[in-house]
Design a binder for these strands. Structure first.
Length: 136
DNA sequence: GCCAACGTTGGC
DNA sequence: GCCAACGTTGGC
């Protein structure tokens, strides 16, 4: 099983909305690196849900329920979506500032490739973030 | 609202 | 195929 991080602007699609919907397809990815990550996702993979622009923190955990398929919002076959569902909210959100301040997370894509909207997370990073969220 | 970083486009 | 110009993302 792999770990990932997906970003969303709360003003466009917040964690709260995601929980209300119970499931969504992750659309709007128009970047090849992010697209490749979507394609690499397997059912059951876990994802951090990150709020960009407002909050700038990891707020919850989601799970892949359906692997990549043609993006239903476009005819362009370059683009895919995955289905994801919320798993649980973090007890304490982990902010970008906290992540930047922890040297164990200095290599996180969130820090190094800040504009990538779908990024891989290593097992070590996953565990560290969960610790910071008071979830261990 | 500004601006840095980075991806993409298009001229040559 | 290089690289400048441009557009977009996202932190502050």
């Amino acid at each position: 099983m792999a770990y990932w991080l997906i970003k969303s602007e709360p003003s466009k699609y917040s964690w709260e909305q995601f929980v209300k919907d119970k499931k969504t397809f992750w659309d709007g990815v128009r970047n090849y690196a992010a697209r490749n990550n979507l394609r690499a996702m397997k059912k059951g993979d876990q994802l951090f849900y990150y709020h960009s622009n407002e909050g700038t923190e990891i707020v919850g955990i989601a799970e892949v329920v359906k692997e990549a398929y043609q993006d239903p919002t476009t005819d362009d076959t370059n683009w895919v979506v995955v289905d994801v569902k919320p798993v649980k909210k973090l007890k304490k959100p982990v902010s970008l500032a906290q992540i930047k301040g922890d040297k164990r997370l200095a290599d996180m894509a969130l820090v190094k490739l800040s504009r990538l909207s779908v990024q891989p997370v290593t097992t070590g990073e996953w565990i560290t973030v969960l610790e910071m969220a008071d979830m261990q």
